[in-house]
Amino acid sequence: MTGMDMREYQRLVALFCLGAAGACTAAELLEQMGIAAMGAGHPPEFLPSSAPAVAGLLRELQGSGHVIRGEDRYDTRHGRQVAVWSAADPGAVLALPAAPRGSGRNADAPPAPVAFRTITVDQRLAFLEIEFEDWIQTQEKAHRAAQERHREEFVSFMKRARRLVATTEVPACS
């Protein structure tokens, strides 16, 4: 099986699961993809191995217009905002695709070892850049919220100060 066959299979499984499950994060989609594919008897090594891999797949599908990135959601497990994705056309993939060619195994044969895949330095830097941008967005949101809170506290203080000055104001002597 070629890498393109596997990638196309992963795209179709992702679109099928997004259509069935609705909006979800990359980690939730990875779980849905695993449940659907393994329930159909597909080998697990054909699926993405991690949530960041699924996030990359989702960004690829977003670039082609198949998925939409929605409002971020706070993830209590990781303590940060995570992207929520949904299918642009939930009915686009109505059935789970067949496993890619070369997926048939002899029942008596042990499973084929999964080759360890490494990522390049450029890919690592790209992941770090994505994480940094996400962190910056979170910090900016927190900063805006703190500014708004301080602004409201200052307005409240000024109202109290005006009332105090108005009640203690000495009339001018003529």
Rank of each mutant, 00 (worst) to 15 (best):
W85D: 08
W85A: 02
S86I: 00
A88C: 01
A88S: 02
P90G: 08
G91H: 01
G91Y: 00
G91A: 13
A92C: 09
A92Y: 01
V93I: 15
L94R: 15
L96P: 04
L96S: 03
L96V: 12
P97I: 11
P97H: 07
A98I: 06
A98N: 14
A98M: 12
A98W: 01
A99R: 05
A99S: 15
A99L: 06
A99W: 05
A99F: 02
R101W: 07
R101A: 13
G102L: 04
G102S: 11
G102K: 06
S103Q: 02
G104R: 10
G104S: 12
R105K: 12
R105E: 00
R105H: 00
R105C: 05
N106W: 05
N106R: 04
N106V: 03
N106S: 00
D108M: 02
A109K: 05
P110S: 02
P110T: 04
P111L: 11
P111K: 05
A112H: 05
A112N: 07
P113W: 01
P113F: 06
P113K: 03
A115H: 05
A115E: 10
F116W: 07
R117A: 11
R117G: 06
T118H: 04
T120F: 00
V121K: 11
V121N: 12
Q123N: 07
R124Q: 15
R124D: 09
L125N: 03
L125M: 05
L125C: 08
A126N: 02
A126T: 04
F127G: 01
F127S: 03
F127K: 00
L128F: 09
L128Y: 07
L128G: 08
I130A: 11
I130T: 10
E131N: 10
F132Q: 15
F132G: 00
E133D: 14
D134I: 07
D134W: 04
D134P: 07
W135A: 15
W135M: 12
I136R: 13
I136Q: 13
Q137C: 11
Q139T: 13
E140K: 14
K141F: 10
A142W: 08
A142C: 09
H143S: 13
R144M: 03
R144V: 08
